[in-house]
Computed example of a mutant assay.
Amino acid sequence: MAGTSETAHEDRGPSSSPDPATAAFVAHRNLLFTVAYEMLGSAADAEDVLQETWLRWAGVDLDMVRDQRAYLVRITTRQALIRLRTLGRRKESYVGSWLPEPLLTAPDVAEDVELADSVSMAMLLVLETLAPTERAVFVLREVFDLSYDEIAEAVDKTPAAVRQIVHRARAHVTARRPRGVVSPAETRDALAAFQRAVETGEMQNLLDILAPDVVFLGDGGGIKQAVPRPVVGSDTVARLLAVGFDRIRAEMSVEPVQVNGAPALVLRLDGEVDTVMALRIDDGLITGLYAVRNPEKLSHMQRETALRR
């Protein structure tokens, strides 16, 4: 968090090294951001959680801390749970479908298969169906491999209760998660085919790359036009895309990128990011399309975000 590290370094000479609390926080910052983002699906809220984490961490007696990483994760988790309950109330009044805030990610995120899976649009939407504590416990155990004792401290439960929550959340997620691992070649081929179909407007090309049960979700946040509810089926989705792109094709540019560790397209109008369209690919076909148009969610598409486990 740039603001945090800058605040922590105020009034220090140019050659002085950071104090131990600042050094520990900076060392684990990307991990803490990833924990908060996976719980919240919002980069802006994850940054706020990191600010709260720093304020609490700065007042801790480090001599009393056995494991700085675990302690920081515990603070972050507790703050994220507070924010997650607030977000739940906010989403109840959200206009149209709510999608996670897309992050432009570096190639190394995609190379870490487990991390890429955990931050994908598809998985974040699955995590949305978990209760807040279930979501926290699942993320800390399945993604970050924290011990049951560490998770118990973070969520104020007993280790036995955490084991039960993990079992329940794992079964819930397994029933809804993407079908399997897709090879990089399949991913590249599907994205390239989809980009050609978008740029040419050829209906058959779209139909060839869309799975019969493909689901299209759009998030305009009540600010930009977007489909108000999920659109299902290759014929319907292909027609929707063909008509939409026909209207703007002359003004738009399309760029393939990595969003949340997965293939995506960025659509620009007059040089400005208008839509981020993330893809879910299964068996070489697109099974999910997630179009984020809400401009309040597009600020993290200007630079890569570092995610870490």
Rank of each mutant, 00 (worst) to 15 (best):
43 A>Q: 04
80 A>H: 03
112 D>M: 06
65 V>G: 10
188 R>W: 13
112 D>F: 06
2 A>Q: 15
129 T>R: 09
208 D>T: 08
12 R>P: 11
64 M>H: 13
244 G>W: 11
247 R>M: 11
136 A>N: 06
204 Q>I: 13
117 D>G: 03
188 R>Y: 13
278 A>F: 12
247 R>K: 14
276 V>M: 03
194 F>H: 06
25 F>C: 04
31 L>N: 01
206 L>W: 13
281 I>S: 04
252 M>N: 08
71 Y>T: 15
2 A>L: 12
220 G>F: 05
151 I>R: 07
56 R>T: 04
308 R>K: 12
269 L>S: 03
238 A>I: 10
81 L>M: 08
183 S>V: 07
281 I>T: 09
258 Q>G: 11
67 D>P: 13
138 F>C: 00
111 E>M: 04
61 D>S: 11
140 L>D: 09
179 R>P: 13
291 A>L: 02
174 T>I: 12
43 A>F: 07
193 A>E: 13
32 L>T: 01
155 V>L: 02
160 A>T: 12
72 L>D: 12
179 R>D: 15
62 L>R: 11
277 M>K: 03
101 E>S: 04
50 L>M: 09
236 T>K: 05
193 A>P: 11
281 I>D: 14
204 Q>F: 08
207 L>A: 06
228 P>S: 01
67 D>I: 07
40 L>N: 12
232 V>I: 09
190 A>M: 07
304 E>T: 11
130 L>K: 09
74 R>C: 02
71 Y>V: 02
120 S>T: 10
72 L>K: 08
21 A>V: 14
233 G>W: 12
145 D>V: 05
256 P>M: 01
214 V>A: 00
29 R>F: 01
61 D>R: 15
216 F>Q: 03
5 S>D: 06
129 T>H: 08
285 L>C: 00
50 L>C: 00
52 E>F: 12
306 A>S: 09
182 V>W: 09
182 V>P: 05
134 E>N: 07
247 R>A: 05
238 A>P: 09
19 D>H: 14
302 Q>S: 02
231 V>W: 10
153 E>W: 10
114 E>M: 10
238 A>C: 04
169 A>P: 06
297 K>Y: 09
253 S>H: 12
107 P>V: 02
53 T>P: 10
277 M>T: 09
117 D>F: 15
191 L>Q: 13
70 A>K: 06
74 R>Y: 03
6 E>N: 07
58 A>Y: 14
241 L>S: 00
212 P>I: 06
184 P>F: 01
197 A>R: 11
33 F>T: 07
38 E>M: 13
121 M>A: 05
